[in-house]
Computed example of a mutant assay.
Amino acid sequence: MPDVELNVSTASQEGHTVVTAVGELDLYTAPRLQAALAGLLREKVDRIVVDLSGVEFCDSTGMNVLLAAMKRLKEQGGSLELAAPRPAVKRILQVTGLDTVFTVTDAAPAMDAR
Rank of each mutant, 00 (worst) to 15 (best):
P2N: 13
D3L: 13
V4Q: 12
V4H: 11
N7K: 14
V8G: 01
A11K: 13
A11Q: 14
Q13M: 09
Q13R: 09
Q13N: 06
G15W: 04
H16E: 13
H16T: 02
T17A: 00
V19W: 01
V19D: 05
T20M: 11
Y28M: 05
P31S: 08
L33T: 03
L33V: 01
A35T: 09
A35E: 11
L37R: 02
L37T: 01
L37W: 01
L37E: 00
G39R: 05
L40E: 02
L40R: 01
R42E: 14
R42Y: 05
R47I: 06
I48N: 03
V49Q: 03
V49I: 14
V50Y: 04
D51N: 13
L52D: 02
L52N: 03
G54F: 12
E56H: 12
F57N: 00
F57R: 05
F57Y: 14
C58K: 09
C58S: 06
D59L: 01
D59P: 00
S60F: 06
M63L: 15
M63I: 14
M63C: 08
V65W: 02
L67P: 01
K71D: 03
E75L: 09
G77I: 01
G77T: 01
G78C: 10
E81T: 15
A84M: 06
A88Q: 11
K90D: 12
K90T: 05
R91E: 12
R91I: 06
I92K: 08
Q94N: 14
T96A: 11
G97D: 07
L98S: 13
D99W: 10
D99H: 15
D99K: 11
T100F: 11
T100Y: 10
T105E: 11
A108I: 01
P109W: 04
D112M: 02
A113N: 00
